[in-house]
Amino acid sequence: MNVTIVDYNSGNISSVINSFKEVAKDKVNIEVTSDLNRIESSDKVVLPGQGSFKSCVDALNNISGLVDTLNEFAINNKKPLLGICVGLQMFADVGFEETETKGLGWISGKVSKIDNQNGKYKLPHIGWNEISIVKDSKIFKDIENYSHMYFVHSYEFVPEDKNVILATTDYSSNIVCSVEKENIFGTQFHPEKSDKTGLKIIDNFISL
């Protein structure tokens, strides 16, 4: 099996690569590429994302044909895709970081700044927070409710259809921190930096 991490100049993906390789060992081939054919023929795709919503969308669009290939993979072929952090946020229709920017539109909703309640909450939301699992998912197999995950973000995904929400975390309000829509999965937190529990989520995705 091939799991492809999309390398589209979205910032630092070394940790994502290291964690997937650690979990995959020799069982699964982890590829890191922006090659459209290799992405399309892959069994599973990981879409990381660091930096701003706009910088990630711009970086996707800078690689000619990449968005079409991802659409083909996730929407037409319905193969499993995991978005991490801004990778998840880009599932939305629109994001408001820096300036209003169109997302992939895979899961209806918007990405807006976390309400810091007039400075009561520091932003970015950095550190370990508990996740509250609201819906069963294969990617949360053997993950205990209220497990700690590592977060770093200032913006949150607000999906229109609440049924896509897998888990939330409490920071200022109940922030959506994981979603699932058919074959599309996303985590706002960083499983690659969430120690053994995070690696288990990666393992669950690889084992889908």
Binding site: G11, N12, Q50, G51, S55, P124, H153
Partner: peptide, 8 residues
């Protein structure tokens, strides 16, 4: 921070 994101 613009290039890599404030988070890092």
């Amino acid at each position: 921070s613009k290039k890599f994101g404030s988070q890092c």
